[in-house]
């Protein structure tokens, strides 16, 4: 019984806000590393500011964040380091901002990746989401700019979306802090393994391509049983990604 009361409280925004402590740039001794990824101009920096209490410059144009910004917050007595990545449309090409984002998710191994998407432009944003989910299992979808979607009469069924993607989906309007407490809670639950994600993997791969990916990734699993994202590595190798080749040769994928 008491459990149920607790969970009701957990859903209450005021309860959560009371537990959130914005740590600003003070990010030493953190328990979890959380990263923000997403398409350009979906409000990642606004989410970042809402969580950390920092006032990183936000602006309504794609490509504003070109470097990593870091900040911290604490929730439920756990300290989180938050890393804001440059916005990208995909992780498959090689411009510098995309590499910063990709390398951090791939090599930085964040405990949770928050993927921020524009709720009014879901289809285009999902392309990146699917790629991130190939790299990492621990992710939360932040369905941001809900206010704008509503303004355009767009309705997103977030429960079906969560089921399809296999990760928690939290609708937010970061500008007005709507949904931020629920976002923090989901991040906490994924970080502490209270929620275990079963992320969507890219389907619809054509026969020959699919076979090649399968063959290569099963070989990778055999050689590196601890590798968290063999399918992604296989895809990158088949695409001729030099950075991943180098990483393999330098043994960067093995956790010391």
């Amino acid at each position: 019984m008491s459990d149920q009361i607790n969970s009701a409280c957990d859903d209450c925004a005021f309860h959560n806000i009371a537990q959130l402590k914005k740590l600003g740039v003070n990010v030493e001794d953190t328990d979890y590393v959380v990263t923000l990824a997403g398409n350009p101009n979906t409000g990642k920096s606004t989410v970042f500011n809402a969580l950390t209490g920092l006032r990183q410059h936000t602006g309504n144009w794609p490509g504003k964040t070109v470097t990593r910004a870091e900040g911290g917050f604490s929730y439920n007595e756990k300290r989180f380091k938050l890393v804001d990545l440059p916005g990208t449309y995909s992780l498959l090409s090689t411009s510098q901002d995309e590499e910063i984002a990709r390398n951090f998710i791939l090599f930085g191994r964040p405990d949770v990746t928050i993927i921020v998407v524009d709720a009014s432009r879901l289809e285009r944003n999902l392309n990146l989401v699917l790629q991130v989910l190939e790299i990492t299992d621990k992710a939360v979808l932040c369905l941001n700019l809900m206010d704008e979607a509503r303004r355009h009469y767009i309705i997103v069924n977030e429960r079906t979306l969560a089921k399809d993607l296999g990760i928690p989906v939290v609708p937010t309007s970061a500008r007005s802090l709507e949904g931020i407490p629920q976002l923090i809670e989901s991040v906490y639950k994924v970080a502490s393994n209270e929620i275990v994600c079963k992320p969507h993997k890219i389907k619809n791969l054509a026969g020959l391509v699919n076979k090649a990916v399968e063959q290569l990734s099963s070989k990778i699993i055999k050689m590196y049983p601890e590798m968290p994202n063999p399918r992604w590595i296989a895809m990158r190798l088949l695409d001729g990604d030099e950075r991943v080749v180098t990483a393999l040769q330098n043994n960067e994928f093995v956790i010391a």
Binding site: L122, E123, L126, Y153, I154, I155, V156, N157, L161, D164
Partner: peptide, 8 residues
């Protein structure tokens, strides 16, 4: 996925 979850 979008087709399943989105109403425009």
């Amino acid at each position: 996925i979008t087709e399943r979850v989105e109403e425009k």
